[in-house]
Structures are given as C-alpha cells and as structure tokens.
Design a binder for these strands. Structure first.
Lengths: 337, 337
DNA sequence: TTGTAAGCGTTATCAA
DNA sequence: TTGATAACGCTTACAA
C-alpha cells in the first residue's frame, strides 16, 4: 500500500524536472544519454507507471478500445471478443471487454464511460435497437463502430453478417446431396437471426416444392432441445433423412439423438448446424455447419476505428457479410433404400 | 463529432457554477430544488457525461473493476468472467475484462494501467508466476486479488481451487461403482492442474493396488485427443470399463469414441470429465464430472476487493476450495459379464 | 445555498 | 538539452 509514485518522485530521484522525465519516457524532445539513463534508472527503482487518468485527461491516447457486448458465455460472442482482442493487439491497442447482460441501461452507461474519455474507440456488439440512443451515440467525439446492428437506421459504421444466405446454402447442400425430407429445428423465436434461418430454410424448400410443416420443430438453440426435437422428427412415419439445426449446440443434441436411436451420422442421417463454434470441428463426425466471418468482422471493426483515428469520416459505412457453408463429415447422400 | 461537453458548459447553460453542477450530480452538499432542476435539465439537453479520467484523477472512485485473464475462449475462463461480472454488477460496479493471451509482458502492462488509476480494484486470473513482479504488485495502492495463483509465495489475497481432491473423488466414485480397470486421459503436460488430476488418479488407484500404467494415456485437453485415446484404451486386450478424462472436452471425445465402437454410455463404459463446462449437463448422457466452485470464487474475489475498499487489510488471505464431484448419467456399475 | 480556489498527474508549448 | 508554466475536467475544502 505505498502511496502512488508520481512523475515528480521520479524527477526528484533523478535530479531532473518532471518535464524531462515525461520527455524521456515518451521519446519526445532531445534528452542527453546521461540524463536518459538516470531517469530510466529512477523509473526502475521506483517502479513508476504513468497514471493513465492524468494522461487521458491531458488529451493523450489511452490506447484502449472498449468492446461492449451482451455476454461472453456464448461461443459466438467469446470468439468475437477474442478476435477483436487479437486484432487490437496487432495494432498496439488494448481491448477491454464489458458485458451488459442485455440490459440497455447498463449498455448506455458503459458506452458513456468509454466514450467519455476512458477509451479511444468503442465497439458495440448487437447494440440495443433504440433510435434515440443511437442518435446520441452518433454525436460522440470518440469513434464508435457497431457490430451486428440490424435495427434502426443510423450513421454509425456497422459491420454485420446475415444468416439467410448461409442457411439457404446449407439447405441447398442437403438438397443437392439428394435429401428430400429435411427436418428443421428452429432457434429462439425472439432472435432475428433464428427467424432468418427459418425463413431461408422455408424459402429454399418451398422453391423445390418440398416444404412440409411437419418437418419444422420449434427450438431454443439448446443442445437439449436438439435432442428431443430430433427424436420427434425421427419418430415420424415419413421421417427425415437430414436435420438442419439452428445452432451448433442444437446440432450436437441432434447427433446425440441419432446415435441414441442406433443410427449413424452421416450414413443414415445427415446433420447440419449453424455458427461453427470451436467444438463444431471436434465432434464425431465433425459438423457441417454455417459460419459467420467473425474474425473478419472484428478486424474490420478495428480497421474502421483506426480510420476514424486518422480523421477519416467513416459515417454511413455498412459492411455486410454473408454467412458461409462449411462442409465437414456430418452430411452425406441419403441411404438408398 | 461534437466536441466534448464539460461541466463548465452545463454550468453556463444552467446559469450556475461548475461546483454546483458537481454537487448536484454527486448528491453532495445542499442544493435547492430549483437549481437542481435547472442543472438536471442542462445535463439532459447537453447530453453531459462526466469525464471519468478527470474524476479518477481527482481521486474519485471509478466504479470499475479490472479483470486480467489469459483468454476467454475456454469455458472455464469465460464462466469466471461472467460470474465476476455478475457479482460486480450486484455491487454496483462495472467489470472490464482484459485478456493477455498468456503474454507476461501484456499482463504486466495491463495490470499497471488498471492499478494506475483506471480501476478501483483488479482481479488477476492465473497470474504469471514471477516473484519479482508479484512483489511489485504487493505495493499497489489499488487493491489486487489473485485467482488461481499456485506459484511463488505472496501476500496478495488469493482465491483458488485444487484439482486433486475432486479428481480423487471421481476416481473413488468409479471404484465404488465396482470398476477396477479405469482408463485415464491426461491433460496438457505443462498444466499444473493437469498434473494434479493425474497425481490424484495415480494415488487413488495405487492405494487400491489397481494402478496400471497401460491405462494412462497422454492428452492435451482436446476433444479430438479424447476420441483417439479412448479408441486406444478400448482396443486394449484388457480394456477398461471406465474412462476418466482430464477435461470435459476430452470426455466428449471419449463419449464419441465409445459410441463409435457401438458401445453405450454408461451401460458398457462409464465416462467422467473434469471442469463441468456449461455443455457438460447437456450431452447425452449428461456428463459426470468435477467442478471448481467458479461462482463462489468470483464472488469471494469481489468481496475481498470490497473489504479492501473499506480499508480492511486483506493481505495474506488465502481462500482454498476443493473441486467437487458432480454425478450425472455417464457413470454406472460395470457390465456384469 | 452557492461559489472561489486549489490541486489531482501528466504533457505541449515556449523560453532559457 | 532542460525546465517553468499552463492546461486537461473534475471535486473537496473553505468562504461567502
């Protein structure tokens, strides 16, 4: 509990002024080798660390990027945070991650603190869809980038990926393999992404005249529901030969259920997931799934921030990505009876 | 891109002094209702947010707890961060999470920034085991709590859980069920936790005279390795009737491998994991595993910080937890031949 | 009830 | 090459 070591302490010990210490540490201005050495030693001895608050107050960069994100337990968000931390690190920036638990008030408060001088830039993942709030954010002096904002129109730069195209591709993949009875396990009803996935499946199936409401089961993104829904589906008189699950977790549940019935994936039943979480490639068989270009999105968000730092006007930037099908080992042509 | 709104702007608009604004906002001193109303309106109109840097510099609380953690991809760390964020939220504090990617230099730098005024308290998860560095941290004016520090002796409060007891309990559980041939899939060799798990298994098996080196397979915590190692184990002439995996991911691989051989869990083969990640209860069968009291540990870390805020001396506090066996559906008595 | 003055630790500017 | 000074935005003590 020593009281804080300040630049004045260092200056005193080194026998110079505070300004000289500052210059030495920031490599600004000319400093004699001798002085530099004395200062550096004093810094060492005292374990001096510049007070970031004072620095930031003085207008200096904090080198901190704040990421405000709903939660970290879902692999999707965790991966987003990891990728952003990596991109930030490469740019010599720190990334601080703040979770909101989807509480709009908390989100507002944290964004305010971050934009209020604590951070050089802020990334908001799935921001609360509140036009009034977004209008305030647009006026922020600190650059803000949105990730996965699908709501009200805003000038804030936005990076996002849709679920529709990937889900279409997955359905077509199954169709192309020869499947005609394809079961679908939906995601949580309130999720716009889940709705898009279902819409894509519906559109694609209807296009081929293969849409059968019986094959669509409600779900909630969980593994447990994937298990039960798949059991329901496979118990049908005209059972499907493939299952498209709205999330990888749900697909894992489907995998479990298929095996539970003594069937094999993909020989007897094909399974497709959505998200491409880290464990998707590690299951047996490895899961065919749909992936959002998470790394790329994080990178672009960081790049957008970097551009803003350099004074570029990034308002109105909208970077849209498609989700992409990742074919692994859980899909194959249907068993020829 | 409006330039920053300061307390002076608010004061001007409200027709009062900056001090009055400050007092109003912080509920300190007496302010007439009329003035208060005018100030609040001005704050609203201007969208004023106090600059946290200036606040912090002035010595005020930042209400921010910093958590420095190796990474967020592993469910264990993600859960730790989530639990801490929750505990912090309940205490009216924000939690900022900073990942180090296990880079000691990065860790030092981030801790320095955090303790240097940015945060009111810092939690370091699995700190770099460097006595010199820890000695510096001990002098920090900002309270620091360690989670899962197993290295050099330090005065810093430390909350941790061992793997040994839980692993012993798991092995005994299997033994108690009647298993005598128990396979073990190890974790990454460099992990001290993995070493403890293996040691526990060894000690317990040896105690019963059932230790057989052939049953111990190297691993790396991955699902993939759990799959291959289990195949190796089950191909043995005297195959085990139970598998103890050093992580849940590895256990999932084991589950896959058992099913891959046309066997059932737990009827034919029992499987035990370690960690109790969120998906452990969602697999089929639900996984018997060993859990660290993560929530409790995060809570205690926050409490320790809170105590330190109140001036209590928490130096030397060491909170040790045992890991605990969670029995689910992946274990049963061995098939009676 | 309100305001004046001082200072938190740092750095940019300018003078020496 | 070095240092004195001012300023960043805020809050606490003290005075009015």
């Amino acid at each position: 509990m020593t009281s804080r070591v300040t630049i004045a302490d260092v200056a005193r010990l080194a026998g110079v002024s505070a300004v000289t210490v500052s210059k030495t540490l920031n490599n600004t201005g000319r400093i004699s080798d001798d002085t530099r050495a004395r200062v550096l030693r004093a810094v060492q001895d005292l374990g001096y660390i510049a007070n970031p608050a004072a620095r930031s107050l003085r207008g200096a960069r904090s080198n901190l990027i704040g990421m405000v994100i709903p939660e970290l337990m879902s692999p999707y968000f965790a991966e987003l945070a990891r990728a952003a931390a990596e991109s930030a690190g490469e740019a010599g920036l720190d990334l601080g991650v703040f979770t909101t638990s989807r509480d709009p008030a908390r989100e507002r408060q944290r964004v305010a603190a971050l934009t209020g001088g604590m951070a050089d830039g802020v990334i908001i993942v799935v921001p609360t869809d509140d036009a009034a709030h977004l209008a305030i954010l647009e006026k922020s002096r600190t650059p803000i980038v949105l990730i996965s904002h699908f709501g009200a129109k805003t000038d804030l730069p936005n990076v996002r990926a849709d679920s529709y195209h990937g889900a279409c591709a997955a359905t077509r993949h199954l169709l192309g393999l020869g499947h005609t009875r394809i079961g679908f396990v939906a995601g949580a009803v309130e999720s716009t992404q889940a709705q898009e996935r279902l819409r894509a499946y519906r559109d694609t199936m209807r296009e081929r005249g293969l849409l059968d409401p019986e094959l669509i089961r409600p779900g909630n993104f969980t593994q447990r529901r994937g298990f039960t829904a798949t059991h329901e589906l496979l118990a049908l008189k005209e059972a499907p030969t493939a299952i498209f699950a709205s999330s990888d977790a749900t697909a894992f549940g489907a995998l479990d259920a298929v095996k539970d019935r003594g069937l094999r994936v993909p020989q007897d039943i094909s399974v497709v997931g959505f998200d491409d979480i880290a464990t998707a490639s590690q299951s047996h068989p490895a899961l065919t799934t749909v992936r959002h270009p998470i790394r790329q999105m994080s990178e672009q968000a960081l790049n957008l921030l970097a551009s803003a730092f350099q004074g570029q006007d990034v308002r109105g930037t909208q970077l849209d990505h498609h989700s992409e099908l990742v074919i692994r080992d859980s899909t194959a042509p249907p068993r020829t009876t």
